[in-house]
Design a protein around this nucleic acid. Structure first.
Lengths: 222, 222
DNA sequence: GTATGACAGGGGAAAAATCCCCTTTTTTTA
DNA sequence: TAAAAAAAGGGGATTTTTCCCCTGTCATAC
């Protein structure tokens, strides 16, 4: 059977064979009109470049981010420069805002989390094939916040005094508050005041969670 | 068609829906004798515990390691204590020697990397179903090295008991030791013993530096 | 000028963490 | 299977942390 419109060629770039093979099954499952053709698979950006040396080229590429050697960012960047007409749909388990934003800025047509429903994946493929854009919830959110100049309700960790930062550096050590006071040439009671203020502002309940907060938010380095 | 032997019930524990669904397709693909039945899926250890509250129980569980909340290690530990007859086949992209070894020590029946061939996955399932063991290359290598007494100056954080790891996860929260004891169904005095032992082994002097150590050495995730 | 708020400091008590030394139970191993 | 080694638990004391309420100082805004 020969369809009027030629099939759409799809390529998969992901470093886990089991995931690629499963994804192929899922794509075919939803491809009731038999319009998709899996052109090739690659394990990483390097493998992709290899396959892209000569035609045929895919119309759509499903791309993971975390891969050995040449990762998704590099691969997408390279694709946009060398084959700008190819539509890229990112399929990744990465949920960090930074990385999502970076991918969107590179101009990908879609961003899917790996824990979406199969139907959503089909929908995304369909949309992208028709020159649309498809972002899963988490990516949409990130996008909106950044378009609307949501400068982010200034993180509480943004406005710390110098003394408070110094105090936090010492909080993650094995010094007692009394020793910290001594080192900072302040009264233990003043230190107690810093502690109390930080507990409230950063919404933590004890010294340990304060230390964890400081580390997690990069206020102190390990 | 009714087979003489009842079907083998399989459960999948992995936090990525797309991977689970793909894996199901791949399992069915190789199941020419139609002997496997996917009993349920779970997103993490918590979901697994939920499903394991009452029969029917699976015969084999395919388990990922990295999952939110209750991870693969905890889930396997729990399973071995509560349902020791269930066969566990780890399917993970984790390739760190430490973690592979830890899983093997927990007594899993098999260890598969996510980038194996589909046929190998079928083979592994078959082998485990028949009371065998199946380790993919990387796991076999790790196992051999350690059997041959390639000791490796093991980091003190390498040989922590499961209870100690669980304790460390709770140490970085705002729970008191009393609450931790309660949650782990142990006496506060036992928890105090864990604390003391870890202080000495990891050379730290208080709860805060213990938490910092655990974070710095990747024993707990933020 | 005075109010307001941020910063430094204090008293005192309750809660939690830390330490030291010891017993029982369970598991491993020789 | 007896001995040894972990693991679990306990008593009790000391130190540290946490909390609440309160005083003075200084600057800055009104």
């Amino acid at each position: 059977m020969k369809s009027a419109t030629p099939k759409l060629n799809i390529a998969l770039v992901d470093d886990h064979n089991l995931f690629r093979k499963g994804l192929i099954k899922l794509i075919n499952l939803g491809d009731t009109q038999n319009k998709y053709n899996i052109l090739f698979e690659a394990e990483n950006g390097g493998g992709l470049k290899e396959k892209m040396k000569e035609p045929p080229f895919p119309d759509i590429i499903l791309m993971d981010i975390e891969m050995p050697d040449i990762d998704g960012f590099e691969a997408v960047d390279w694709l946009q420069r060398t084959h700008p007409s190819i539509k890229i749909l990112v399929v990744s388990m990465v949920e960090s805002e930074d990385k999502i934003l970076r991918m969107l800025r590179l101009g990908v047509k879609g961003y899917l989390s790996k824990d979406i429903e199969v139907e959503d994946m089909h929908q995304a493929l369909e949309t992208v094939a028709n020159n649309g854009f498809y972002y899963s919830d988490i990516a949409t959110e990130v996008l909106n916040q950044n378009l609307n100049g949501v400068v982010k309700p200034s993180h509480p960790s943004a406005n710390l005094s110098e003394n408070e930062r110094e105090f936090l550096k010492l909080v993650i050590t094995d010094m007692t508050y009394y020793q910290i006071a001594d080192k900072m040439n302040l009264s233990p009671k003043t230190i107690d005041g810093y502690r109390e203020a930080l507990f409230q502002r950063l919404k933590v309940k004890n010294r340990t969670t304060l230390a964890v907060y400081a580390i997690k938010h990069g206020i102190v380095r390990l």
